Simulated assay, not measured.
Amino acid sequence: MSPKIYPVYPSALRSIRNLAPLLDRVLVQRVKAEAKTASGLYLPESSVEKLNEAKVLAVGPGGLDRDGKRIPMGVAVGDRVLLPAFGGAAVKAGEEEYQLFRDSEILAKINE
């Protein structure tokens, strides 16, 4: 079950930088797997696995609790995160694909 892709038209959104997530949503771009082996052979695109690692590009201001106070986000721009295998809303801008997740759907932050 793959996520539904919502195309972003150039007239509506010139750059993904103009996309601002709302509430507790996080905009990420998946890290691409190496298409080259250690010995220098290039693998066909069909044999390269999709990684569950992504880089956070933008975060919303955070959700609201019952009292109307902001709940702080668990991730920040530039963080590397671990994503679930399924879920999120796919967004395509130009040739690049991005995904929107809720903060609570992100599995972990990868510390270096």
Rank of each mutant, 00 (worst) to 15 (best):
M1Y: 14
M1T: 13
M1I: 10
S2R: 09
S2E: 09
P3H: 04
P3V: 06
K4P: 01
K4S: 12
I5M: 02
I5D: 04
Y6C: 11
V8D: 02
V8I: 10
A12G: 05
L13R: 11
R14M: 09
R14S: 09
R14A: 05
S15F: 11
R17C: 10
R17I: 11
L19P: 05
L19C: 14
L19D: 10
A20E: 04
A20Q: 09
A20N: 08
A20W: 04
A20G: 02
L22P: 08
L23G: 02
L23W: 00
D24M: 01
D24F: 00
D24L: 00
R25N: 01
R25C: 03
R25M: 04
V26H: 03
V26K: 02
L27R: 00
V28T: 02
V28Q: 00
Q29E: 15
Q29Y: 03
R30D: 09
R30E: 15
K32T: 06
A33W: 00
E34T: 12
E34A: 15
E34K: 09
A35L: 07
A35M: 05
K36A: 05
K36L: 08
T37V: 08
T37C: 11
G40V: 15
L41A: 00
Y42M: 11
Y42V: 15
P44R: 13
E45F: 03
V48I: 15
E49G: 06
K50R: 12
L51F: 01
E53H: 13
E53D: 09
L57S: 01
A58H: 07
V59F: 13
P61G: 11
P61D: 13
P61A: 15
G63F: 05
D65E: 01
R66L: 13
R66Q: 13
D67E: 07
G68W: 09
R70A: 11
M73F: 13
M73T: 09
A76M: 14
A76T: 12
V77N: 04
V77I: 05
V77C: 03
V77W: 00
G78L: 08
D79Q: 13
R80S: 00
R80M: 04
V81A: 10
V81E: 10
V81H: 07
L83D: 00
L83K: 01
G87I: 12
G88L: 07
G88D: 11
A90P: 02
V91S: 01
V91Y: 02
V91Q: 03
A93V: 14
G94C: 10
G94N: 11
E95K: 11
E96A: 10
E97T: 06
Y98A: 09
Y98V: 12
Y98R: 13
Q99G: 03
Q99C: 08
L100R: 09
L100W: 07
F101D: 06
D103Y: 07
S104W: 11
I106F: 05
I106V: 12
I106H: 04
A108L: 10
A108K: 07
A108R: 14
I110V: 14
I110F: 06
